[in-house]
Amino acid sequence: MNNLYMAPSPHIHSGDSIGRNMYGVLLALVPAFFVSLYYFGLGALIVTAVSVASCVLFEYLIQKYLMKEESTVGDGSAILTGVLLAFNLPSNLPVWIVILGAFVAIGIGKMSFGGLGRNIFNPALVGRVFLLISFPAQMTTWPVPEVMSMNYTDVETGATILTLLKEGSGDLPSYAQMLLGNRGGSLGEVGAIALVLGLIFMLVRRIITWHIPVAVIGTVFLFTAILHAANPAFASPPVHLLSGGLLLGAGFMATDYVTSPMSRRGMLIYGVGIGLLTTVIRLFGSYPEGMSFAILIMNALTPLINTYVKPKRFGEK
């Protein structure tokens, strides 16, 4: 009788864990990964593998030797950062740049704040934006989809939908091509149907709530619809939804637990902010794509949103 546990209530737990959520998101990303393997072949595999391996290794080394604490790489959050970083890179990016991106993502984006749960910005996006600014040429040459390509850095390159829109030249891919993922772009962002499938999976498993994705996508749709109606020179809403990293960003990057607001009302504000900023950068900024910047800017506003937007209390009007 001497070994009974004593603790305050509750005495049972749901069994939910950080790992369960992280691996759930990873599972949701599997269809999109297959799409990228199909269209970008070997390059997609190399970039993803290098990114994941280096993210995990950097997190392990930093926790063990710099922070001198028990390693928690097993929870899958470093793997997820690695996958998301890779999904935001072109599939012909040289290995050393990928490793550098992973180092910035984990070392600066995450561990310098104290590790999972304390970072302010989405680590994968920190890595991605660092690379975008440091290596603009490599980061904006996109391989042309080629079924099961065995080429890596020596692939044929072309423009993305958003660059085409920005430059106002060339023919856009058809809607069917956009939905399937047969278009230029970062390796994980192309397969619209696959990404939506993953998003539905996360909603069903209750890993995330609908608020952020719906707010982002709805805002972009509404905003571009108004602009398109006012001036048909702007692309129509479906083109905007299916191009660039919008679906990947709205479903998998903006919904990152740590860097998004905690109350549902806050999530809606945050999502609308991302949608507005993305559209503004895409249509009026000098970059063709604005998702990463929009999410990072709203990440910075998250503490403010958390302070001022509280959940609705019981008994409160």
Binding site: D16, L116, S263
Partner: peptide, 11 residues
Amino acid sequence: RDCIRCAKCID
């Protein structure tokens, strides 16, 4: 572990 701000407790 550290809070990952998933907001499930709020939900």
